[in-house]
Design a binder for these strands. Structure first.
Lengths: 195, 195
DNA sequence: GGACTGACAGATATTGAAATCTGTCAGCTG
DNA sequence: CAGCTGACAGATTTCAATATCTGTCAGTCC
C-alpha cells in the first residue's frame, strides 16, 4: 500500500497506526495490519516500539498534544484573564464536541485508547490544568480574580466543567440545551472567581 | 431457601432480586435464580413483572429512591440555605463514596443497572435537581443567594459537582485529596451564588 | 554491521455447537 | 377462578477448538 522504499521512522509508523485505527477500530487494529500498511514485516515495527501498548500510547499522546497546543495559543493571548478563561473553556468544549459529533467512531476509538493509556492522559490533564493555572494566576496578578491558591482553583474549575470535556459525557454534548448549560456553569464559576 | 408458603408479592420478589444480584452480580443474575430463591417457578415472577428489564429497573428505582429520601430530609431542614446546600452536596458525595468504597462489587452492580435503566435514572436526577432548586430558591427568597433562574442554577451546581457524585468517577473517590477538591469546588460555587 | 525478515512459542481472539435463559401460555391445583 | 406450574420456541450465553496475534531472535541482505 504505502511506498516501501522510504526509510522506516517512528513518525511513519505512527501515521500508519492512526490510519489503521481509523479503518479497523481499536479492537481489530493489529501490529500486523500496521506493518502490512507500511509494506514491512511486523518485526520491524517492534524495532521502534517495544510493545503494542507503547505504540498505541504514542499515538494517543500525539492526539492529545494537538489539543494542548491549540489551547496554549489562547493562554498566551492578550485579552483580559476573564476573556481568556471563557475562551479557553469554550475552545476545549468546542474541540471535544466537534470531534465527538463529526466522527463518532474515531472519537470512540480514541476514548478506548485514552482509557487504556497509563500515563499519557495523566500528563495531558496536568498540562491542561497548568494552562488554566497560568490564566488564573494572571487574573490574580491583575486584580481581576480572587484565588488564594491558583493551582487549586484551576483544578476546581477544570473539574467543575468536566461534564463539558470528559469523554464519558460525549453522548450529551449533542443534545439541545447543552450550550446554555455550559454557559450557566461557566458564569457561576466566574462569578465566584471575580473580585 | 426462602419460605415458599407466604404469598408472592412484588415486594418479596424485589428483595429476592436484590439478594440474587448481590450474590451473582448483574451479568449472571437470572430470573430463574430469583424464582429459585423464592421457591416458585420463574413463570410466577413474570406475573408481577412484565420483563426481566422491568424487574431490574424496579430494583434500581428502589435503590435510587433510598438516596433521594435521605437527602430530602436535608432540604426540609432548618439551617441557612448556605448550610443546607453545603450539607446536601456533602451528604450526596458521602453517601456515594461510602457505597462505592464499602462494597465495590455491589456498587459496580448498581452502576450496570443504572446504565441500562431507561427512565429510572432520569427521574432520579430530575428529583435531585428539584431538591437543589428548592434550597436555592429558599436562598434567593432569603436574600442570601443571587440566582435569576434557580432551576437553571440548580442544574449548573449539580453538573459542576458531577465528579463527586457521578458513578463514573467512583475510582477517584478513594484517592487522597478528594475531600479538598470537593471543598474547593463547593467553595467556588458558593462564592458565585452568595450575594 | 545495522536494518530487516520470518519462523516460532505463548497469549489472545474467533467461531460455532451445545447449554441456558427469557417470555408465553395451556392446563393444573386448592 | 385466581394464582401458579412447567413445557416450549426463540434469543442469548457458554465453552472448547481453532485461528490469529504479540513479542523474540537467529539468521539474511544490502
Amino acid at each position: 500500500m504505502a511506498p516501501p522504499t522510504e526509510t522506516l521512522t517512528a513518525e511513519r509508523i505512527l501515521e500508519a497506526t492512526e490510519e489503521v485505527l481509523r479503518r479497523h477500530g481499536p479492537a481489530k487494529a493489529t501490529v500486523v495490519d500496521v506493518a502490512r500498511a507500511l509494506g514491512v514485516s511486523h518485526g520491524s515495527v517492534y524495532r521502534h516500539f517495544r510493545t503494542k501498548a507503547a505504540l498505541r500510547e504514542a499515538v494517543t499522546k500525539r492526539w492529545l498534544d494537538r489539543t494542548s497546543e491549540k489551547l496554549a495559543v489562547i493562554v498566551a493571548g492578550d485579552g483580559t484573564p476573564e476573556d481568556r478563561l471563557r475562551a479557553w473553556l469554550a475552545a476545549l468544549f468546542e474541540a471535544k464536541r466537534h470531534k465527538a459529533g463529526d466522527d463518532p467512531e474515531l472519537f470512540a476509538t480514541y476514548t478506548v485508547l485514552t482509557d487504556e493509556s497509563g500515563t499519557a492522559v495523566g500528563e495531558h490533564l496536568a498540562d491542561l490544568t497548568s494552562q488554566l493555572t497560568r490564566i488564573i494566576q494572571d487574573g490574580v496578578t491583575a486584580g481581576a480574580f480572587t484565588a488564594p491558591d491558583p493551582a487549586a482553583t484551576a483544578r476546581a474549575v477544570f473539574q467543575a466543567t468536566g461534564r463539558f470535556h470528559d469523554p464519558g459525557y460525549a453522548r450529551e454534548w449533542q443534545q439541545p440545551g447543552v450550550e446554555e448549560e455550559f454557559t450557566a456553569v461557566v458564569d457561576l464559576l466566574l462569578r465566584g472567581l471575580l473580585t
